[in-house]
Structures are given as C-alpha cells and as structure tokens.
Simulated assay, not measured.
Amino acid sequence: MTIDIRKTALATLAALSLVPASVAPAHALGKKDRAFIAGAATAAVAGVVINQMRNNGQLPFGNAQPRYAAPPVAPQYYVQPRATYAAAPAYQQPRYVAPSVHSTPAAQAFRELSPQMRREVQISLARYGYYSGAIDGAWGPGTSRAVEAYARDSGTTGQLGSVAGAYGILGGLTG
C-alpha cells in the first residue's frame, strides 16, 4: 500500500487551486490575498505529504535515533572542605616596637616641670641651636631630638636613661 507522493501532491494542488475561485470572484482578491491562499495551500499540501511519508516510514529522520546522546549527569553539590587545624607554635618571638618619644625618662622628667620651666628648656635649646620648633612647653619629637643632641654633645647621654639623670640635664638648661 505505497502511495505515490507525486500523485498525492498534484491531486492536492489541483483541489486547492479550485478553492479561491469558488470563495470569491477573481477581481475581488488582492495581491496579498492571493499570496496568503497560495501559502496556505502549500502548507496544507506539505503537511499531507509529510504525514503520509511518516506513516509509511519513508522519512529518513522520522523515527531515527539521535547519533549522540549525552550520558546522564549526576547533580553536583558543593561540599565545604574540612577545616584542618595546625598546632600553634609554642613560642613566638615578640616583635620589636620602638619606644615612643613620650614614654622615655626624659619625657617623664620634662612633663613634671612647670609650664614656665618647660618653655625655658626649649628657649635654651633654641639659643644653643638644637631646637627650631615653637616655644610651647610641649614635649614632642622636636624637643626630644634637641635634648638628645644636647646630651650627646655635652657627654651626658647616659643620664637620659633614668628620670633622675634627665632632671639633671633639664635642670642645667633652665638655670
């Protein structure tokens, strides 16, 4: 029971070509109307032909299996890694932190002086050429460097290691 595709297609085209004439007079159809009817007829004919070929097993791609099928993939889940704890070192070498100019014995001795005496120390250091900052009576990096330079030049650097020795150096600058 093989059906000839050409005969079926021609018969369908012939039948559909008669439909527009019976629906409306030829002069009533516009250019777009005729194109629409021709497209609809072509689609109908192609549908009939493809269905017949599919039913008869004549289409090479109708029942064919795909050439490649990807293997099924198992779902992927994120697994957080386990934390591994290493033993902390038993002893860590302390980091060297330079002492602040405000924590030296000379700074402690300077802060215990009266505000007038602090300014006198800065005036004396400026007069000798060791200090060039503001005469404000405040201990800072400039005053610290000036006192250290004065002690170095006068040979009394060792006295800056104690508060009592720093009093002696500062006392020499106030009087």
Rank of each mutant, 00 (worst) to 15 (best):
V49F: 07
L18W: 04
V23P: 00
A41F: 07
A38I: 06
P25K: 07
A44N: 10
L29E: 01
T42V: 03
A28D: 04
S22H: 14
D33F: 03
A26K: 10
A28H: 03
G47S: 15
V48P: 00
R34M: 10
A46D: 13
A28C: 03
A28N: 00
A26W: 11
K32T: 04
V23C: 05
S22D: 13
A15I: 10
A46T: 15
V49W: 04
L29W: 12
A11N: 12
F36T: 07
A41D: 11
G30K: 01
V49C: 06
P20E: 00
A26D: 09
V49L: 11
H27A: 15
L13P: 01
P20D: 03
A14F: 06
S17A: 12
G39W: 11
G30Y: 02
P20V: 06
V19W: 03
A35H: 01
R34Y: 01
P20S: 07
L16E: 06
P20F: 03
V48D: 13
L29H: 04
A35N: 05
A21T: 13
A21F: 08
S22W: 14
I37M: 12
A43W: 11
V23H: 13
A40G: 03
A15R: 04
A21S: 15
K31E: 12
S17H: 04
A44H: 07
A21C: 06
F36S: 01
A21K: 13
K31Q: 04
P25F: 05
T42F: 09
K32S: 09
V49P: 02
R34N: 12
G39A: 14
D33L: 05
A41Y: 07
V19M: 02
V49K: 01
A44E: 02
L16A: 07
A43E: 15
A26N: 03
A24E: 08
V48F: 09
A15F: 09
A41T: 09
A26T: 09
A28S: 07
A21L: 11
P25H: 13
G39Y: 10
A15M: 08
S22C: 13
A46N: 14
L29F: 03
H27K: 15
A43F: 14
A24V: 09
K32E: 06
A44V: 09
R34W: 03
D33H: 08
P25L: 11
A38L: 13
V19A: 02
P25I: 06
V45A: 14
S17T: 01
L29P: 02
L18T: 06
A15P: 02
A46L: 12
L13F: 04
I37T: 07
F36I: 04
G30V: 00
A35T: 00
A11S: 13
A46V: 13
D33T: 12
A24L: 15
I37R: 08
P25S: 14
L29Q: 08
A46R: 14
A40S: 05
A40Y: 08
S17L: 04
A15Q: 08
